[in-house]
């Protein structure tokens, strides 16, 4: 089963995304900030990252930049944020995101986008 790492400092958001992804038969792990996420990414591999932007210690942009700069198996990343400005979206892609979504994401939308990025669904 495909493994997904959810990175968000909001416990309710992590739980919401976890329940959606587990409904889709994905194995889910969680991290509360970019530093914790990077540690997990260094310890084991994930098939996809679901990344919030605003987090303490290391924000989503910083996490993706660090991840992409390292000699690791690279997986697609969805950056997901409350910030809907074009500037944020451009910055997300520049940091290494494959997709930018605005919170809150509806369950069907999230599952569909994850499956597309994992090659399980044609866009």
């Amino acid at each position: 089963m495909k493994r997904i790492l959810i990175i968000d400092d909001a416990a309710t958001v992590r739980l919401y995304h976890r329940e959606i992804l587990e409904t889709g038969s994905f194995v889910v792990e969680e991290a509360m900030n970019g530093v914790e996420a990077l540690e997990k990414a260094l310890q084991s591999s994930f098939d996809l990252y679901l990344v919030d932007i605003n987090m303490p210690k290391l924000d989503g942009y910083g996490f993706l930049r660090e991840l992409r700069s390292r000699d690791l198996p690279q997986a697609p990343a969805i950056m997901i944020s409350t910030e809907a400005q074009a500037f944020d979206e451009q910055r997300a892609y520049a940091a290494g995101a494959n997709l930018y979504l605005i919170k809150p994401v509806k369950p069907d939308q999230l599952l569909a986008q994850v499956r597309v990025l994992l090659g399980e669904l044609t866009p």
Partner: peptide, 13 residues
Amino acid sequence: LNVCGVAVDLLSE
């Protein structure tokens, strides 16, 4: 929606 969302998240605690 998102302002209320983060407020509810905190109210959970």
